[in-house]
Amino acid sequence: MADQTMAYADGDPHHVRGALEHSGPASKRIVTGYGFWIFILSDMVMFSAFFATYAVLLGQTAGGPRGGQLFDLPNVAIETGFLLASSFTCGLATIAADARNKFWFQIAMTVTCLLGLAFLTIEGREFASLVARGAGPTRSAFLSAFFTLVGCHGLHVSGGILWLLTMMAQVFAKGFRADIQRRILCFALFWHALDIIWIAVFTVVYLLGSAA
């Protein structure tokens, strides 16, 4: 028995198999975490390029209207309030997920979804109003840069809402499994990143643009 114990001290097949079973998911979690952060950083780099392009083309209006003549700051402020509030409710949803509370998770995610849709509705009306006034993306280089930057953020919010609905469906059907918890965390990081980007958009595009 002693010899058998010594023989398995470094190579117990049950121990080795158990270690492998635990190392696999851990490695997967590490890779998934790194991969998602790379995605977030790549998004930041992309938006940085859009901001730089907008800054270069800000004065290229081709004789058309400037930002101060087009932007409706009160509406944009309301739009911003909706998105910031959605970040708060998204945080509440994350807390509810940590507490394994399905009811409050679904409530918080529903409110987050509604606030995100309200944000997109105001943005869509703004775009439609600009196009109706002859200030579409083809009017000038300035407007092309504006629609590209703000529209790309809107597309990200739309994708985030689809992701949100998927998370709600998965929690409803499967509960708070470990893999679903990781996806909820990734979604929350993505949603908060969109808020940070929008604050930069609101400051650079709308506030400074209206003052120009």
Results as ranks from 00 to 15, higher is better:
Ser144Leu: 11
Glu79Ser: 14
Ala178Pro: 08
Ala62Asn: 14
Ile199Gly: 06
Thr138Val: 14
Arg139Asp: 11
Arg139Asn: 10
Trp104His: 11
Ile122Glu: 04
Ala145Met: 04
Asp10Tyr: 15
Met6His: 12
Phe39Gly: 01
Ala26Trp: 13
Thr53Tyr: 07
Tyr34Asn: 11
Ala96Pro: 00
Phe147Thr: 03
Leu155Lys: 07
Ala7Val: 09
Phe202Asp: 00
Ala93Ile: 01
Arg17Lys: 14
Leu130Ala: 02
Ala108Lys: 01
Glu126Thr: 12
Phe147Glu: 02
Phe127Cys: 04
Phe142Gln: 06
Glu21Val: 14
Met168Thr: 02
Val111Ala: 08
His156Val: 05
Met109Val: 02
Val76Gln: 03
Ser42Asn: 13
Ser144Glu: 11
Tyr54Lys: 02
Asp12Tyr: 06
Ser140Cys: 09
Ala19Arg: 15
Gln106Asp: 10
Gly160Trp: 01
Leu41Arg: 06
Met1Tyr: 08
Met109His: 01
Ala7Glu: 13
Ala108His: 02
Gln4Tyr: 11
Gly160Arg: 01
Phe187Ser: 00
Phe82Asn: 07
Ser48Cys: 07
Gly116Val: 01
Thr89Glu: 03
Ala169Lys: 10
Gly116Leu: 01
Asp195Asn: 11
Tyr8Gly: 07
Cys152Ile: 07
Gly175Glu: 05
Ala19Tyr: 15
Phe82Leu: 11
Leu155Ser: 13
Gly209Ile: 00
Arg182Val: 10
Ile196Gly: 10
Thr61Asp: 09
Ala19Cys: 15
Gln60Thr: 14
Gly209Ser: 06
Phe105Arg: 03
Arg139Gly: 05
Leu58Asp: 09
Ala96Glu: 01
Arg133Val: 02
Thr5Val: 11
Leu41Val: 15
Leu57Gly: 03
Val150Gln: 00
Glu21Trp: 13
Trp163Ile: 05
Leu20Ser: 09
Leu155Cys: 11
Tyr8Asn: 15
Glu79Leu: 12
Ala52Trp: 06
Gln170Glu: 13
Leu207Asn: 03
Leu162His: 07
Ser48His: 06
Gln60Leu: 13
Ile30Asn: 05
Tyr8Ile: 10
Ile197Cys: 05
Cys186Ser: 12
Ala128Thr: 05
Gly67Gln: 03
Trp198Thr: 01
Phe202Cys: 01
